[in-house]
Design a protein around this nucleic acid. Structure first.
Lengths: 228, 228
DNA sequence: TTTGCCAGAGTGAGTGCTTACTCACGACCA
DNA sequence: TGGTCGTGAGTAAGCACTCACTCTGGCAAA
C-alpha cells in the first residue's frame, strides 16, 4: 500500500476515535487497531499523537463543496428562509446520518470549546465569512421588501443566535439516548425554523408564506463548513 | 479534620479538575494535589475514580435556592421577560464570574453531551420541570393579554430553543480566547433577549415596553438548576 | 531470464514513564 | 488503647513511543 493512502486511512480511523473519546480518552493503540495496523507503523506516519490530532483538526477546516450553491442565490426573503431551513435541516440530521461524518465534526467542534477553542474559532470564522454576508444581504432585502422588521444594528449576531440554537439542538441529540426529548418531534424542524425566523425579525405572514412552500431538496445541506 | 469535611474538600477540588480536563484527562494524582492530600487518602474516601466522578455529577443535580423566587412570581408578560432576561444574563456571566462555579457546571454539562448524556438528561429534566411550567403559564398569560401571538402547540420547545441559544453563547465564551467575538458586545444581552422574545412570539411593542424597564437585580441569576 | 540488491512498508516485542489503586505504618485524640 | 485521619512508598497495568527486524516489489547487472 502507498504511503499516502495509508496516511488517509489512519487519519480517517483517528478522526473516529478522537471524535468519540476526545484527545485524552483516545489511545494510539486504539487508533492503530481502528486502522488495522501496528502502533509502530502509526508512528512512522505521524511523529506524535498530538501531531495526528492537529492534522485532523486542520483537515476539518478545509473545503466546502455543496455550500456554494446556497451562497450563489440572489439575496431575498426566500433565500433567507432557504438558508435557515437548510441550516435547521442539516443540524437535525446530524445524529441520524449514517456516515457519522457530521456527528464527528460536531464532537470535534464541541471538544474544542472545552479545550482552547482554537479549532472552533477557526471554524466560526470560516462559517461567518462564508454565510454571514449572504445572510446579511438577504435579511436587508427582506427588510426592504417589508417581510422583516429592522432589529438592531448587528445582523451577524442574529445569524449566530440562530446557529447556536440549532447546533445545541444537534448536541442534545448526539448521545445514543438523547439528552432532551422535544415535544411533537414531527413538527420540530418547522418549529425551530419559525422560532429563528421570528427571532431575526421576519413577519408572521412572510414566515408562513415561505415556510409553506416546498423547498428544493438540494438545499437541505451543509453549514458547519464542508458538507457530507 | 472530620471525614465529612474532607469529603467535601475533595469533591470541590475534583469538580474543578474534571470540569477543566474531562474524565479521561483528569488524574487522581492531580485531584489529590488540588485537594492538598495524598492519593492514599483520596482512595480512603472514594473507592474509584469513576465513583468520585459519579458523585460530582449526582451532587450537581441537587438543590436550587435562588431560583424559587423567580418561579413564585405570578404568570405574566413581565414575568416572562424577567425569566428570559435572567436566563440570558446568567449565561453571559458564566465566563466572567470569578468563582467559576457556573463555568464548571457548563463544562460538566457539555462533557456529558459528548459522553452518554445521562447527566445532561437529568439536568434538562430538572430544569424543564422547574422552569417549564412557569414559562408556559407566563407565555399563555402574555398571549391572553395580547402581548404575544400564539405560535405552535408546544411552548416548552420554545423554552428549549431559548435555552439552547444562550447556553451555546456561553460555551463560545468559555475558552480564555473566546471562540466567537460578537459585534457590539455592549448591547449583546439586549440583542439576545430580543431575539429570544421575538422567537417565542412576543410582539415588538411588548418587548420594547418590558425590556426598557429596569429589572430588579435579584432576578439576574440562575437557570442551570442551582445557582451560584 | 536470473540474480542480487535495496528502499520502504510493516511488525511486535520492547522502553521508560504514568496511571489507578493498595498497604503497612505513623500521628493524633477520645 | 483503639479508632480513624493521614502518609508515602509501593504494584501491576496501561500509556506514548522506539527499534531491530522481516517482507515485498521493482530494477539494474550478469
Amino acid at each position: 500500500m502507498t504511503s499516502d493512502l495509508r496516511r488517509e486511512l489512519i487519519l480517517s480511523a483517528a478522526k473516529r476515535c478522537f471524535a468519540r473519546n476526545g484527545f485524552a480518552g483516545t489511545t494510539t493503540k486504539s487508533v492503530a487497531a481502528a486502522a488495522s495496523i501496528s502502533e509502530g507503523l502509526l508512528f512512522k506516519h505521524f511523529p506524535t499523537k498530538s501531531a495526528l490530532y492537529a492534522e485532523i483538526l486542520a483537515e476539518e477546516c478545509e473545503a466546502d463543496p455543496a455550500l456554494n450553491k446556497l451562497l450563489g442565490l440572489a439575496p431575498s426573503t426566500e433565500t433567507l428562509v432557504v438558508l435557515v431551513r437548510g441550516m435547521v435541516g442539516h443540524f437535525l440530521q446530524v445524529s441520524h446520518a449514517p456516515d457519522q461524518e457530521e456527528a464527528q465534526r460536531l464532537r470535534l467542534m464541541t471538544n474544542s470549546h472545552l479545550d482552547d477553542g482554537e479549532f472552533a474559532r477557526l471554524l466560526y470564522e470560516k462559517i461567518g465569512g462564508l454565510i454571514g454576508p449572504a445572510f446579511i444581504a438577504s435579511l436587508e432585502q427582506a427588510i426592504a421588501a417589508g417581510d422583516a422588521s429592522p432589529v438592531g444594528r448587528e445582523p451577524l449576531n442574529l445569524f449566530w443566535f440562530a446557529h447556536h440554537t440549532v447546533l445545541m439542538m444537534a448536541l442534545t441529540q448526539l448521545p445514543a439516548v438523547p439528552c432532551l426529548t422535544y415535544a411533537e418531534a414531527a413538527g420540530l424542524e418547522r418549529q425551530a425554523c419559525e422560532f429563528i425566523l421570528r427571532g431575526i425579525g421576519l413577519t408572521e405572514p412572510a414566515i408562513a408564506a415561505h415556510l409553506d412552500r416546498e423547498v428544493s431538496p438540494d438545499f437541505g445541506l451543509p453549514v458547519t463548513a464542508e458538507s457530507a
